[in-house]
Simulated scan of single mutants.
Amino acid sequence: MMTARPTGHYALKPDGLYLQFDRLFYAPIEDVWYHLTNPTAMQAWVGTYTGSPATGGVRFKMTFEEGDEWQNVSILECAPPHRFLADSGPGPNGLRVFCHLVEGGGMTTLTFGQRLQNPADAATMGPGWDFYLDRLAAARAGHELPVWEQYYPAFAPHYRELSVPDAARH
């Protein structure tokens, strides 16, 4: 079993401040894309969805969140197997996430990000995404899945102490 560590960092994009994560997989890009986008494969690490992504919207539910409800998700961009951008939840306080995949040298790099409404949110969002992305890696490899208690509150100080890029300060 691997030792969990916080990996998120800030990235400033034209539409706001993102908490961003990178993971490297020794696998073809199509395989990693499958685990990110197939509703059955997703169940092993994050959740599932119903509906057809081709319509531009699905309903998504996280499997491991207590009392989590089905959320409407708008798919803003989808370019298999390289990237997607999606919004979840109501209005301006909803969640925006993206995935970018790049393959080279027999490896695929996943860059995942979530836009933050407030940098203080990173103290809870960061440990959560480290947890889910490590679950993705473990599920793909057939390894034991990590447990939440390894991530929170242990990772919160890392995310509280991240420096916000100057251009993102209000």
Rank of each mutant, 00 (worst) to 15 (best):
A139R: 05
Q114K: 09
T111E: 14
Y18N: 04
P119Y: 02
G47E: 12
G104T: 10
E66H: 14
N118W: 11
Q20R: 12
C99D: 07
T111S: 13
A79S: 13
D130M: 03
A138M: 04
R140K: 13
A41N: 08
E149R: 14
Q20I: 00
G113R: 00
E149Y: 06
P146I: 10
M62E: 15
R83W: 04
V102H: 09
D87W: 06
D31G: 05
W33C: 03
P53Q: 07
P28F: 03
R23H: 06
L95V: 12
T109L: 14
G56V: 03
C78F: 01
R23P: 08
F131M: 06
Y26C: 14
F131K: 01
P80A: 04
Y26H: 14
Q114C: 14
Q150T: 13
G67N: 15
G128E: 03
Y132E: 02
D130S: 08
G94D: 05
D68T: 12
F25L: 10
F64D: 14
W45K: 00
L24A: 09
L110G: 00
V97P: 00
A139V: 07
S52N: 15
F84V: 00
Q43G: 05
F84A: 02
Y132I: 00
V147R: 15
N93W: 07
Q117D: 05
G91T: 02
F21E: 05
V32L: 14
L145R: 15
P92R: 08
L116T: 03
P81F: 09
T63F: 11
E69W: 09
Y18V: 04
M42Y: 05
G67P: 07
H82C: 03
T109M: 12
G57Y: 01
F131G: 01
E144H: 11
D87K: 06
T108C: 05
T124Q: 12
A123F: 01
